[in-house]
Amino acid sequence: MAAPRSTHRRTPPSPRRAAPRRKAAHRGGASAAPATAPSSASAKLGGAPLPAALAARVARLAIRDAGHGFDPFGLNAAWVAWALVVFGPLYERYFRVLSHGAANIPASGPVILAANHSGTLPFDGLMLWLDVVRHSEPPRVPRAVADLFVPGLPFVGNAFSRWGVVGGSRGNVRDLLESGECLMIFPEGTVGIGKPFSQRYKLQQWRVGHAELAIRHGAVVVPVGIVGAEEQMPQLARLPVRAFGAPYLPIPATLFPLPVRYHIHYGEPIPIGRDYKAAQADDPAVVRQAANRVKAAVASLLRKGLAERKGIFT
């Protein structure tokens, strides 16, 4: 059987890649080794033609297999592998994602990644998901918590569930955190993704659910600042049209997202689960205070990221 062909171009050697992990800014394809995965690994991963290093990462993913290679929510390693293949070029070549501080993601236990949300279309979620799968150690699949209408979307809802996305119902997130999974939450919600261009990098309404969950389930919160996405697709207007449960129809200035460069900054973990008692999850003032800590950390990462970047596209 012929070895599967890699779709990834070799990335030139970079001094950054040799630097210690915590200090490194991981370039999109940095973790991809030149060799391709052995054929047996490809078969195990649904035949996805991944470079060996990425295939090895997927093979190391800890997925709660409920019996047929799927976890109870539908997450499947082969779908993750194919997502890395299909969206790899978007991550590596289009948005040219630079990852900063992925070592801040805890290796195990319940974690909530709380990030800013923007860009009209949720490419920021996709890039963050890819970045965590590619750079967390040991590799983890972040479970994106989506609005409740998302699982009801045909095709999209199905694909999302295979990649680990769950509807944001209390029962779903409770189970995931109790199982020690890594959640990915955008506290700004749809208000954030639909923010006008003039409001870019200004955090909109900051929901408190992530803080409440962290307190209740003893989770740590890793603040994430995503720089770049806020300029990818300036929004001209939104039509009050509800389709498949989506709250509005966006009218962007461009048909496709602009090839901005993404910088994903992971901050130091905030031990909210340790700093508060579980019973305090029922105290709105405490929950708001904890959420504000996260909001301040994300805002700080955004300021740092904006100060460090050289330009929107570079």
Binding site: P72, L148, F149, V166, G167, S169, G171, D175
Partner: peptide, 13 residues
């Protein structure tokens, strides 16, 4: 069983 209810069904579902 709906999109907006938890996937994992507990007894109080």
């Amino acid at each position: 069983v709906k999109a907006e209810v938890p996937v994992l069904i507990q007894e109080d579902h």
